[in-house]
């Protein structure tokens, strides 16, 4: 296949991982109005859950738990479950807080988790990470075909998640979340119990983020703790803001737009030195795009619109 086409397809495949993360963030922060800067926590938990279940047994120079080399399906299921469980646990103390206080607690938790990932060698092989995690079904396809297959699978996943999140956003449950976002005190008088709604949407977000973490490892075949810095959180937020916070289509589009913006320059065939410069410049480009979009389209590419019933 043509180089460019393969490149385009693999970028979109990566974008679908971000789409899921972005949709998860949207229902939590766009629809329910929470100020979460810790979504990378559950992304990381999901990724590590998948990795230690699916990777082969640790070699003599490595340490990590399990290494069951089991069916990736179990890895994904575990990633979803543990993503949700960790969100449930972190939510217990932090959901009592609002706005800035919630924001700082979630980002603090995500840093504590990342530092734990890098230091608890017995669990995660520390900063060295885990490599060569085999991709499911890989042996049945030629490399080119496998890239297309991944694209199709990840596309399906992200569409399914989109449908799910969208259905939920426009359900009575979604209505209660929006009511809480708009006016928490008034929402209480409408028989809505904030802690219950917040906790459930937080766990749901955790499950989805965990799921996308598993897909991320599937795609990359490796996992290192530096993949889970607050940078991921800011990236996803940026994508959501670009796309249009509160709008699920916007979240979908924003994630794709963002990944294309970030990755396209890496297609250029450059000398190593120049490549370093370009890799910095694309960060600057993302920054510039974000500033300009907020200046001229403060509500993002697709803004949240009134729901017509």
């Amino acid at each position: 296949m043509e180089g460019f086409l393969i490149f385009a397809i693999s970028i979109l495949t990566l974008a679908f991982v971000y789409v899921i993360l972005c949709l998860a963030l949207n229902i939590e922060c766009g629809v329910a109005g929470m100020w979460d800067l810790g979504i990378v926590s559950y992304f990381g938990v999901g990724a590590y859950s998948y990795a230690i279940i699916v990777a082969p047994e640790a070699a003599s120079y490595q340490h990590y738990l399990f290494g069951l080399e089991s069916n990736p399906i179990y890895g994904i299921v575990l990633a979803i479950i543990l993503g949700g469980v960790s969100a449930y646990l972190i939510g217990l103390p932090s959901l009592r807080l609002r706005r800035e206080y919630f924001l700082i607690t979630t980002i603090a938790f995500s840093e504590v988790l990342r530092i734990t990932f890098s230091n608890e060698n017995w669990l995660t092989n520390g900063v060295a990470g885990i490599y060569n995690i085999e991709q499911p079904l890989k042996s049945y396809f030629s490399p080119d075909n496998y890239i297309v297959l991944l694209f199709v699978i990840f596309l399906c996943f992200s569409v399914i998640v989109y449908k799910m999140v969208n259905k939920l956003s426009f359900s009575t449950y979604g209505l209660s979340l929006k009511a809480l976002r708009e006016n928490e005190a008034l929402a209480k008088t409408a028989r809505i119990e904030p802690s219950k709604q917040y906790h459930s949407v937080y766990v749901f977000t955790g499950c989805l983020a965990g799921f996308s973490g598993a897909l991320y490892v599937w795609l990359n075949t490796l996992i290192v703790p530096t993949q889970f810095t607050p940078n991921v959180t800011f990236f996803v937020w940026t994508a959501l803001i670009i796309g249009g916070i509160g709008n699920n289509r916007g979240a979908f589009l924003g994630a794709i737009f963002f990944v294309i913006l970030l990755e396209t320059l890496s297609f250029l065939n450059l000398s190593a030195e120049l490549a370093l410069v370009v890799s910095s410049l694309r960060i600057a480009l993302v920054g510039l795009a974000l500033i300009l979009i907020l200046r001229y389209l403060p509500n993002g590419l697709l803004r949240e619109k009134p729901t017509v019933l």
Binding site: T238, G287, R295
Partner: peptide
């Protein structure tokens, strides 16, 4: 006048911009 979320994320964009330029 566009609210704190817009200001916050403009500052995120600025952070990326500075970081990228200095890195380059």
């Amino acid at each position: 006048s566009n609210g704190i979320l817009v200001q916050l994320f403009t500052s995120v964009g600025l952070a990326y911009l500075i970081n990228g330029l200095v890195g380059a």
